[in-house]
Design a protein around this nucleic acid. Sequence first.
DNA 1: GCATGCAAGTTCGCATGCAAAGTACGGACA
DNA 2: TGTCCGTACTTTGCATGCGAACTTGCATGC
Lengths: 235, 235
Amino acid sequence: MVRTKSKDTLPDVELRLSTAQESARRSQGAASEVYKRLRRAIVEGEIRPNEPLIEADLAQALQVSRTPIRESLQRLAADQLITPRKRGWAVREYSLEEIRERSEVRAALEGYAARLAATRATDAEIAAIVAIQDERDRTADLTPAYRVEANRRFHDAIIAAARNTRLADDIFRVGQFYFNKHIAKLTTDEERRLNQQDHREIINAIQARDGRRAEDAMRSHIMQTFTVFQRISGN
Amino acid sequence: MVRTKSKDTLPDVELRLSTAQESARRSQGAASEVYKRLRRAIVEGEIRPNEPLIEADLAQALQVSRTPIRESLQRLAADQLITPRKRGWAVREYSLEEIRERSEVRAALEGYAARLAATRATDAEIAAIVAIQDERDRTADLTPAYRVEANRRFHDAIIAAARNTRLADDIFRVGQFYFNKHIAKLTTDEERRLNQQDHREIINAIQARDGRRAEDAMRSHIMQTFTVFQRISGN
DNA sequence: GCATGCAAGTTCGCATGCAAAGTACGGACA
DNA sequence: TGTCCGTACTTTGCATGCGAACTTGCATGC
């Protein structure tokens, strides 16, 4: 009997992968495609937390055998996106406490990246960062999706300027769960204003080549983002 | 034809795994055992960098089929211990540049851990950290293995006091390649003296509950360790 | 002597079979 | 009615088969 849940309509949208993850895998083949799809489905919330992942069902839905499914589940577990059950795997649920921990890790890593960027960025890279933020401020179309994208580009530009691919990969790993469009929809005007102000402070510090100030600004920006989470989940 | 390299004599010593990694996997079964053995063989240098890993050979050597071997290779790739070739996998080689990048990541993470420890550690935890270092200073038997162990315990105690399991896991991930007994053998007396001095400075800052100073001290300690690497590989 | 192309051998990616471990359900008994 | 237990079913872990992709090495021509 064929089981059809929502799984057989998984979207096949392209996923951004960190460079190391991309290069650490054969980037083509059935297993890789399965991995991208499952990852997308989990990150987007299509597969609910604690929902068990049945190998045979996924194989059926994605029209491959269980072997590439199993390989993908291994990768997802390494990404901490799924967690082992006595039997099989389930989508991982993140407690507020865990999000706090991850926020601290991100503050440590991305703060350090901002510090490095302040000393290592070329003038062109700084100009690019400023341009991204300027465009964000100029844009009228502030849909959640656009805000997520603009935010991501801002952070990515700083991380790139830090010139440390391992650091960039680890930031991607820990940060991949945050600020998606679902969250973006729930922010208040005041929070957005604070957010933009934070970005400007980071930019100012980098322009001044002040590593310590850039690091502090990035850290408090990230921990500020956590308080938004806290508000949203705490209501 | 059966190929017998050194692989069929892989040691089956217990491996310390980070909590998340341990819990992220079924901890029993053939695949898990294979993973531990291969990991050990790579970290210990039994399998040389760039040496290709042939699924069938490993299966033969470890007396399992290719399936658990393939699963283990996936995990090792996630750990960044092996890297994909056009065909198959090979043990990863670390350039000095990559070690520098990893050192920076470790400085960011473990520095932050030291900062958190300075504010969060209980008096008992601080006493434990001090006790570890006192014992190290008192011990006459300074074999490389002992020094590695004492160093690890010192760092672990601080990380534990930071009370952030995710941070601890990420530090383990990035730091697992450093300061093993091969490296410990190559350090100079002066480097060891500096090392112990660094540890004392970190302790002092934590005792003073000075997060910023603890963070700075830990960072410079870790980057100092990198310069030792540089010296060793640069000769 | 060197390059080029072809063929044989190697190794992998994926599919599938099977046994064992786990799970749920229904019936019997308190 | 509630609990305990056995049985049938589900789902996994591991083994293995097969076709395809890549590599290697030799032969042939320039």
